[in-house]
Design a protein around this nucleic acid. Structure first.
Length: 786
DNA sequence: CCAAGGCCGGTTTTT
DNA sequence: CCGGCCTTGG
């Protein structure tokens, strides 16, 4: 069950007080630069605002809304303003309110594509054979449903996994293809079974009175296409349309917008083709590139003055992105002068890279080399793939450096939340079979596969939902003993909760507590001895607390997305660790961009799957990364990295070649010329591939030449040549009984040698197997300050 | 029904 | 190498 902002009632279009607005002179216009001002004042007709990173896009957009309102051009409920994330929607609401000096209760149509579609669809559900109280399934439900269909069709779910089918269907929905509209050329997917399965899936959703995320868009587009009267009504209603992050729209969203803007053409799209990084999930850069053709006479306004970064950082970003073809083209500039060049540093391996970043972060706190002291909360480490975070987390835990990871599993995706929500769903709607399946044996009630099958059969034979099926099964004594008793209890419980949910006098908070108590779910976690249990109970409490701001359970169920923003706001300064994707739209004084190696970034898979298109998207990702930095940007790469337990060597990313030399400062890695931990560690790890000479290659003036020679390493080059496995520690320097020191486990004695691995009895951490490279002789380590 | 062990696979992520 | 998922055995 999912989740987004559906808070405002459909009709809640309380107009802002016109008098209050008129009383405020339009001073907000004075804060804008000429391009921004033009974008704000061009109210009529299609406008494309090409807003580069850090150019005040949100400011222009929100001021535009304020302008529409305060000039009396539009009333709040006549403006449709669409974003991709709840966060962006919220920020926009806040900023519009700030402009107007009052809250924006009256902007019911400012929200995400999905939230707005839910509202529309609740209104017109019957036009696509749904009831207006349909449930919204999330990916998990979706996959379970598809799995059932695959199994029912006697398809080997090993060879044809539900996940794959889900992604095919999502893809089709993103392109606004209903089952009958899938082109023949695409129908071969999934052993030609995808189209019929898609068809069945839609039918099943309809009987469940449910939709998935893709349907929200797709159904609304279908309604608009088939029912002109409805479309015309909304065209009249939404007199002004604004779209944020237009480069991220997929085909369905694009059609949706074109349909709505089709009459008056008062549509203002804001975006940056250079920041399109969601192609892999259906976004079409083509939408923004084509805007002028789609909307003839469109005014294209470029926001190019950057208020975020230093000139060096902008130049580096521009240098990289210039290699992309088919751009609309923008030149970012800034009035800011001076600043540090982008720093580039190569490391021997990923661990050393993490170690170096850690030391750098500590040093920056004090202020180094003439720089102002930079606190941890001003720093971010942006990685291409989440698994890269681990090396940093390990290192930061070791040295006790506070960090926060953005983008872990979302609150509402956690098991206990999903379970609790399934109970709530069932209380609201006993028809919700997927919810029933989820909790029928959670907590364990002795209702295993056999019992569940019987319930399914009873339900299907009678054409009723699973709760009724269970009731029939029990009445017919189809189930006996312990199972029967607990199922009867569950059914009785659902009936009770149902009655309470229907009672308008029943507090939904109390109801939630009753459900969690009576179902035994709370008890289940109280009895759980695993270390996660207390956290889960805590989450459940938080869930109930979150209910307070809602009128009823149903409203809450769709609103859950909001609680995922419960970012624990403790005041300790922490460095932020996240993916490049998650960083879009954010900014930090100091940014570290590690792992710039070909194959990792740009990712091999992106290039394998979509070729040049993929490479260009990776390059845009690089651009997004660099432009997150305000004052200091540090790019790094490692010559060796352990991937799936194997050491692999890598070449610096091709994007590094694209950095303009004049704006880059190549740093010398530690441990090259003596001193520091690197030097101390060397005796332990030196091999034929000498550490210093290796690193030197990458940092000598000749490293660029070496890369130039390697420019055949294009997408066509065989993988093998890039993925040479290097045995770093063919010769171990250690023997039985040696005293050693390990970064994480401390001191210990070698008890065994196995190739490059050592078995060590650590004084404190116990016996562990460790790669020899990670330990140093105890004697030499003793003098090194960590 | 549950726990332990084998096997496979392994970017990016919002709604 | 590590984690998730599924199978198998108690």
């Amino acid at each position: 069950m999912s989740s987004f902002d559906e808070s405002e009632a459909f009709e809640a279009a309380v107009p802002l007080s016109q008098r209050a607005l008129a009383a405020r002179p339009a001073t907000y216009l004075d804060d804008l630069n000429p391009a921004q001002r033009e974008a704000v004042e061009a109210l009529e007709g299609p406008v494309l605002m090409l807003a580069g990173a850090g150019t005040g896009k949100t400011k222009a957009l929100t001021t535009r809304i304020a302008h529409l309102l305060s000039t009396g051009t539009a009333r709040p409920n006549e403006i449709l303003a669409v974003t991709f994330t709840n966060k962006a929607a919220r920020e926009m609401k806040e900023r519009v309110a700030r402009h107007l000096g009052q809250t924006v209760e009256g902007m019911p149509w400012l929200g995400t594509f999905h939230a707005i579609c839910v509202k529309l669809l609740r209104r017109h559900a019957e036009l696509v054979d749904l009831k207006s109280n349909f449930t919204i399934l999330d990916t998990d439900d979706q996959i379970r449903l598809l799995k059932q269909l695959i199994v029912a069709a006697n398809i080997d779910e090993k060879r044809w996994p539900p996940r794959a089918l889900a992604s095919i269907i999502d893809n089709w929905k993103n392109r606004a293809w209903t089952p009958d509209a899938v082109p023949a050329a695409e129908a071969g997917a999934f052993d030609h079974k995808a189209v019929p399965l898609y068809s069945e899936y839609q039918a099943r959703l309809r009987t469940l009175n449910a939709v998935d995320f893709g349907d929200l868009l797709l159904h609304v587009v279908t309604i608009f296409q088939r029912h002109d009267d409805v479309l015309q009504q909304y065209r009249r209603w939404f007199r002004y349309i604004l779209v944020d992050e237009y480069q991220d729209t997929n085909v369905a969203q694009y059609l949706w917008l074109r349909l709505l803007a089709g009459g008056h053409q008062n549509i203002c799209c804001v975006g940056d083709d250079d920041q399109s990084i969601y192609g892999w999930r259906g976004a079409e850069v083509g939408n923004i590139l084509r805007f002028e053709k789609d909307f003839p006479g469109a005014k294209v306004i470029r926001l190019e003055q950057n208020y975020r970064s230093t000139a060096h950082i902008l130049a580096a970003a521009s240098g990289v992105i210039a290699a992309n073809k088919g751009r609309l083209g923008k030149t970012l500039w800034t009035e800011a002068e001076g600043g540090e060049k982008v720093r580039l540093i190569g490391h021997w391996d990923g661990e050393e890279e993490a170690r170096w970043v850690g030391e750098e972060l500590e040093a920056m706190g004090q202020g180094t080399r003439g720089l102002r002291p930079v606190g941890l909360d001003e720093c971010a480490i942006l990685v291409r793939a989440s698994h890269q975070m681990r090396a940093f987390e390990d290192r930061f835990l070791t040295i006790g450096l506070p960090y926060r990871v953005i983008g872990g599993p979302r609150f509402y995706e956690r098991m206990e939340i999903r379970d609790a929500m399934a109970y709530f769903r069932l209380a609201v709607s006993p028809d919700d079979d997927l919810a029933f399946e989820r909790i029928v044996n959670t907590p364990k009630r002795g209702l295993g596969d056999k019992a569940q099958q019987k319930i399914q059969i009873a339900a299907r034979a009678n054409g009723v939902n699973l709760v009724e099926g269970a009731r029939i099964l029990l009445a017919g004594k189809g189930l006996t003993g312990k199972g029967a008793k607990s199922l009867a209890e569950l059914v009785a419980g659902i009936d009770r909760w149902n009655a309470r949910a229907r009672n308008p006098d029943q507090s939904h908070i109390e109801l939630a507590e009753i459900i969690l108590e009576e179902s035994g779910y709370t008890e289940h976690w109280q009895n759980d001895k695993t270390p996660e249990a207390p956290g889960r109970l805590e989450n459940l409490k938080e869930l109930v607390k979150a209910l307070e701001s809602f009128e009823n359970l149903q409203g809450f169920l769709e609103h859950v997305a909001l609680i995922m923003d419960n970012e624990t706001e403790d005041s300790e300064a922490k460095v932020t660790l996240m993916t490049l994707h998650a960083a879009k739209g954010l900014e930090f004084p100091a940014v570290f961009l590690p792992g710039w190696e070909d194959g990792l970034f740009p990712s091999q898979r992106a290039m394998d799957e979509t070729g040049l298109k993929g490479l260009e998207e990776e390059r845009r990702l690089a651009y997004v990364g660099i432009t997150r930095a305000e004052e200091l940007c540090t790019i790094s790469f490692a010559a060796n990295r352990r991937i799936y337990g194997q050491w692999q060597s890598a070449l610096p990313s091709r994007f590094i070649d694209e950095l303009p030399e004049d704006h880059v400062d190549v740093l010398t890695p530690p441990g090259l010329y003596g001193g520091g931990f690197g030097a101390a560690a060397q005796p332990a790890s030196s091999t034929l591939h000498d550490r210093a000479s290796r690193a030197d290659v990458y940092n000598s003036p000749g490293w660029k030449r070496m890369q130039a020679r390697g420019d055949m390493r294009g997408m066509s080059q065989p993988k093998e040549s890039r993925n040479v496995v290097i045995d770093l520690d063919a010769v171990s320097a250690f023997g039985q009984g040696d005293r050693v020191f390990h970064q994480k486990f401390g001191y210990g004695a070698v008890t065994g040698v196995e190739g490059d691995k050592l078995e060590i009895a650590f004084d404190k951490a116990g016996v562990k197997k460790v790669v020899a490279k990670f330990v140093v002789p105890a004697a030499s380590a003793g003098d090194v300050p960590f």
